[in-house]
Amino acid sequence: MELILRNITHSYGETEVLEGISFNLKHGEIVCIIGPSGCGKSTLLRFIGGLERPDSGEVLLAGDPPSGSLNPLTYIFQDFALLPWRTVEGNVSLVLEDHGIRGERAKAIIDDVLARTKLSDFRKALPRQLSGGMKQRVAIARALSVNPAVMLMDEPLSALDSQTRELLMDDLVELWTRERFSACYVTHNLAEAVRLGHRIIVLSRRPGRIREVVEIDMPLSERPDRIAELDRLQRQVWQIMREEARQADLEIADVA
């Protein structure tokens, strides 16, 4: 299944946030959307998942979702969005219950996704007992359980410390290598973008337009060993963003 974005334009009241965004997300591809604060990255992601509607332009789905996909477009949130009153397995079963999956079938799925995210030992734990990285792994497990076609990841690692971030990036790469999911990955962190993205879409400051698209054809699995090359790439992208980021930083005051 593919995602096609056509000419997305949106404004909140007088403030124009996005202008003329068009790109395609191919099957099995991770597209990182990067840009300065307030450029409308997260808004764009909400349009893609159908949580909000753009003023003009459209988001199209091409092709059928994989069979057995309960929720083709599935989010991973920055703040994990776990229900604090449910255990790890309860949080996963939450999204299965509405599809009528209970009992043995649910247990099988939960066992599977918890194993894939290395959480099998924590199924009875409450979110407050988990570290930030584990919480995000629970969120990932929850997302995996509905067998998504596209993962919509909204700064999923931003709330974590840098070591945890590294570990989780490794986990994500490993997961992708096995599952080959497609993902739209919004971040403001260049290191994440160059580690995880097959393509990096750089947005300009508000109103967000596509400033540059950077293709990275280095396989994800090889990237940890080719840090120097990635560093160069990262600096290159930073050069593109730098002036935008500076301007955005001066502007941000009147956005809030």
Binding site: N71, T74, Y75, A81, L83, L94, V95, E97, D98, R142
Partner: peptide, 22 residues
């Protein structure tokens, strides 16, 4: 937390489920 409600919506939970479970 509005984010929890949005999470529920993003997973396609029904209105009643969101009210009852979130």
């Amino acid at each position: 937390d509005r984010n929890l409600i949005r999470m529920g919506q993003s997973f396609g939970l029904s209105w009643l489920s969101i009210v009852r479970k979130i």
